[in-house]
Simulated assay, not measured.
Amino acid sequence: MKTVIALSVIGLAGCASTASVEPLNWSSLGDGCHDRGLSELLLSPEHFGTTLNLTDIRIGRLPDVGNGTGLVAHFRRGLNGAFGQPTREPQLFLAVGDWNRSCSVVLEIADCPESTEIYNQLAAQSIPIGHAFDDATGLTVIHGTKFFLSARDGHSNQMNWSYVGSEHRLRDQIDAALDDLSQCAGPASASFSMYTR
C-alpha cells in the first residue's frame, strides 16, 4: 500500500513539473517584461501567437545561449481590416531579451523616425534561393548568432526565414537594421537590465 501511494505521489509530481506554459501572444504585446525568451518568438513563430498583418515585417537577432541579448523589431503596419484597410496607425514593437526573459516597448512611428526608412529598405529586399549553391560547405557554424525575418506580403502569404552563418546580403541588412533601431529600443534595454538584476 505504501508503495502504491509513493508511486502515485511521484506520478503527480511529474505531472506538475511537465505542465506546459501558455505561449505569449507576441502579436499583441505592448510595454512590459516577461519570463519568456525571444527564442520562443523567433525559433517557432508559427506556434506562438505571432500572427503578422498584411505588409508587416518582423526581424530578429538572437545570440547563442549565454552570449548576450537579442533584439526583435516588428513593424506593425495596422493593415488588419477585412480588405487590408488600416485599422490603426503603424507602430513599432521592439523587444530586448535572451533565451529566458525579455522586455518590450511599443512606439509610434514618430517616436522612432528612422524606422520608416529601415522598413522601406527591408521591404525592397529579396532572398536568393541559390545562396552558396556554387560553393556548398554544409554546416560551418555550430554556435553563433542567428538572424530571423518574418513577413506577410500584400496577398497574405507569410514567410519565415532564418540564417546562421556569414556572408549573406540579407543577414547583413537585418544586422544593420537592428543596429540602427537599437537606440529606439533603449527603454526596453533599460527595463531588461533592471529585470535581470
Rank of each mutant, 00 (worst) to 15 (best):
P86A: 11
G84I: 09
S115R: 03
T140N: 07
L139R: 13
V72T: 15
H168A: 11
L107C: 06
D134R: 13
K146E: 11
V105K: 14
W99T: 05
L94P: 09
A123R: 12
D135I: 06
R101C: 01
R88S: 14
F133M: 12
T116H: 01
S102G: 15
G97M: 15
R152T: 09
S162I: 01
I127S: 01
S162Q: 13
E89S: 14
T87I: 11
T140P: 00
H155A: 10
A95D: 06
C103W: 10
G144Y: 06
F83P: 01
W161M: 03
Q91E: 15
Y163N: 03
V96W: 14
F93I: 03
A123L: 07
N160T: 04
R101M: 11
S102M: 15
G81T: 10
N80A: 12
I109Y: 02
I142Y: 05
N80V: 09
G78N: 11
E108F: 05
F93Y: 14
N120S: 08
Q158G: 02
P128W: 06
V96Y: 14
G97I: 15
S115Q: 11
A110Q: 06
F75D: 03
G144R: 07
Q125A: 05
H131F: 10
N100Y: 12
A151G: 01
T140D: 04
A95C: 15
H155S: 09
H74G: 03
M159L: 11
L71Q: 15
S115N: 05
N157W: 04
P113L: 03
N120I: 00
I127H: 01
F93C: 02
A132K: 13
S150P: 00
G130P: 01
S115L: 03
N160M: 01
S162M: 07
R101Q: 15
F133Y: 14
V105S: 08
H74W: 13
Y163D: 02
Y119H: 07
F147C: 03
S150L: 01
H168P: 00
G97Q: 14
E89P: 03
E108Q: 07
N100D: 13
A95W: 04
E108N: 09
G130Q: 11
K146R: 14
S166F: 08
L149H: 04
S150E: 06
W99G: 00
V105P: 02
T145K: 07
V96N: 15
P86C: 14
C112W: 00
R152A: 09
L122W: 04
G78H: 10
F83M: 12
G165E: 05
S162W: 03
Y163C: 02
L139G: 02
A95I: 08
Q158C: 00
D153A: 07
E114H: 03
L149S: 00
A123C: 02
C103V: 13
F93N: 01
C112H: 01
I129C: 00
E114N: 12
L94D: 13
R77V: 06
S115C: 12
T116P: 00
I142G: 02
T145R: 08
D111G: 07
Q85Y: 09
F83H: 09
A73E: 09
L79S: 09
E117L: 10
S104N: 10
G130S: 10
Q158E: 12
P86Q: 13
R77C: 05
T137G: 09
F148S: 03
D153M: 07
L94S: 12
K146L: 02
T140G: 11
G130T: 09
G84P: 11
N160W: 04
